[in-house]
């Protein structure tokens, strides 16, 4: 599994396209609390986490339950971790849950890339 992280609009998907030849048909755009892992590239993990928090599910647990399905995936998550602690409890929990998931995924990943202004910074 490859994990791509980076701030909003930094070119994470563009990097996935360029570096791993991801095509449009292979992309799953997270909007809810479930993921179609038959798609090779899963993006907006942070939105998946937000939906999980709203549904009272721990995103990391979901990944543990589906571990056999994302071994060869390219996962993309927005870095939402550098701002002030959100005052809204849902947003606060969102950040925490997404952080727990990313820490787990970075351990499992064979490669972790951070994208800054369209440029790759290899973290693992």
């Amino acid at each position: 599994m490859i994990l791509i992280i980076g701030g909003a609009y930094q070119g994470k998907l563009g990097f996935a396209r360029d570096a791993f030849s991801v095509t449009e048909a292979e992309i799953f755009d997270c909007t809810g609390a479930s993921i179609d892992f038959s798609k090779r590239c899963v993006r907006h993990l942070e939105e998946f986490c937000y939906a999980c928090v709203e549904a009272g599910v721990e995103p990391k647990d979901y990944f543990l339950e589906h571990k056999d399905q994302w071994r060869d995936s390219i996962l993309i998550c927005r870095d939402i971790f550098c701002g002030v602690v959100p005052t809204d409890p849902i947003q606060r929990e969102w950040r925490q849950a997404a952080g727990r998931l990313c820490q787990y995924l970075t351990v499992e990943a064979e490669r972790v890339s951070r994208i800054f202004c369209g440029l790759e910074q290899r973290l693992k």
């Binding site: 909003a8 930094q10 870095d79 939402i80 971790f81 701002g83 959100p86 606060r92």
Partner: peptide
């Protein structure tokens, strides 16, 4: 300025 990595909607 890098202003892309917070959890504010």
């Amino acid at each position: 300025d890098y202003l892309y990595s917070d959890a504010i909607r």
